[in-house]
Each structure stands twice: as structure tokens, then as C-alpha cells.
Deep mutational scan, measured.
Amino acid sequence: DYFTVDMEKGAKGFGFSIRGGREYKMDLYVLRLAEDGPAIRNGRMRVGDQIIEINGESTRDMTHARAIELIKSGGRRVRLLLKR
């Protein structure tokens, strides 16, 4: 199942961390959800969800650093296409 999650940044960021990336020879996944962060309050994202797109850009062969950069580059908002 594919689904989109739109979030607005909180005081401590978006409230999730990721693992994976090209340099680890793996796809990008949601690693952790911060307690009471925007990701957990949104209610749609879960640990283990695969991140397919960040702000419309495919994560295929994307490095971990580039993924972080893209998440931050959207300013106060981020849109993720996830797969569960």
C-alpha cells in the first residue's frame, strides 16, 4: 500500500528519523518516531514504512545525506510517499 503523508515541522523538527540510503546498499525507511512529534500526531506514519518519495523526488539510489537534505529543504513542510 502506498500513501502520502504531509507534515508541518514542530519545535524539534518533523519528529521522525530514517535509516538506509545508497551508501548502506538499502532503501530508505522510517527508523523512529519521536514521542509527541508531528509524525506521531499525524498518525499515519509507522516505524518500518519505506520512504518512496520526499517532496516529489524519488528516493531510488538516494544517499542518506541527500534524503535528510531534501526533508530539510522543504522548509516548514514535508510531503512523503510511503509504502507499507
Rank of each mutant, 00 (worst) to 15 (best):
M45H: 00
L33H: 03
F16V: 03
M7C: 08
G43C: 09
A39T: 05
H64D: 03
L33D: 03
G56N: 12
I52W: 07
R44H: 15
R41G: 12
E53G: 06
L33M: 14
N55W: 04
N55Q: 07
R77A: 08
Y29M: 10
D49I: 00
T59L: 02
T63H: 05
A67V: 04
I18E: 01
G56Y: 06
R32E: 15
Q50P: 03
G43P: 11
G13F: 02
D1W: 06
T59D: 01
R41F: 10
N55Y: 02
R76F: 12
V5M: 04
Y29L: 10
G10Q: 09
N42F: 08
G48P: 01
N55C: 04
Y29P: 01
M7Q: 04
D1Y: 04
D61P: 03
I51E: 00
A39E: 08
P38L: 07
E23N: 06
G15P: 05
F3T: 05
R66E: 13
R66N: 11
R60A: 11
F16P: 00
T4L: 07
R76K: 14
R44W: 07
G13W: 02
G37W: 05
N42L: 11
K9E: 15
I40T: 12
L31R: 13
E69H: 07
G37Y: 05
Y2G: 03
D6P: 00
R22G: 10
L80R: 00
F3P: 02
G21P: 01
P38I: 12
R44M: 15
R41T: 14
Q50W: 07
G21L: 01
Y2H: 03
G74D: 09
I51M: 06
I18Y: 02
R66F: 05
S73R: 12
L28E: 01
K12M: 09
A65G: 08
E8D: 09
G48W: 04
L82A: 04
F16I: 05
D1C: 02
M45T: 03
A67W: 02
E69C: 08
G20L: 01
F16R: 00
K72T: 10
H64T: 08
M62Y: 05
K72H: 07
L33R: 02
G21T: 02
R19M: 05
S17C: 13
N55K: 02
L80D: 00
A39Q: 05
E57H: 14
G13I: 01
V30I: 11
E57Y: 13
E57Q: 14
R84P: 15
G74H: 14
D49K: 00
D1Q: 15
D36Y: 07
M62C: 11
E8V: 07
K25N: 14
Q50C: 13
D36M: 10
I40V: 12
L80C: 04
G43I: 05
N42Y: 09
Y2S: 11
R66K: 10
E57I: 13
K72M: 12
K83P: 01
I40N: 15
G48Q: 05
F14N: 03
I40A: 14
R22E: 15
Q50A: 15
L80V: 09
G43V: 05
R32A: 15
M26H: 11
R44K: 15
G75P: 11
L82K: 01
S58M: 07
G74E: 08
A67C: 09
D49H: 03
L70K: 10
E53Q: 13
V47E: 13
G20H: 07
D36F: 09
L70S: 12
R76I: 09
Y2N: 15
R22H: 03
L33C: 05
I18R: 00
M26R: 12
A39M: 06
R84V: 03
K9Y: 04
K9C: 05
V30S: 00
K72L: 07
D61F: 08
G74L: 04
T4K: 12
Y29T: 14
E8T: 06
L28H: 06
R19C: 03
L80S: 00
S17I: 11
T4V: 08
R22T: 15
A39P: 07
S17T: 13
I18V: 12
R79C: 11
M7D: 02
I40F: 08
E23M: 02
L81K: 15
E8F: 03
E8H: 04
A67S: 07
G43T: 08
H64C: 09
L81I: 05
G56A: 05
D27R: 07
I54Q: 00
I40R: 12
M7R: 02
L82S: 01
S17V: 10
L81R: 14
R76S: 13
L70D: 04
G56Q: 08
L28D: 00
E23Y: 02
E69T: 13
G20N: 02
G21N: 03
E23F: 02
I51T: 00
K72D: 12
G10A: 13
A39D: 05
R79P: 00
G43W: 03
D36I: 05
D6S: 13
A67Q: 00
K9G: 10
K25I: 06
Y29I: 15
M62R: 02
V47K: 14
I71P: 00
F3D: 03
D6A: 06
S58C: 13
G74N: 08
K25F: 09
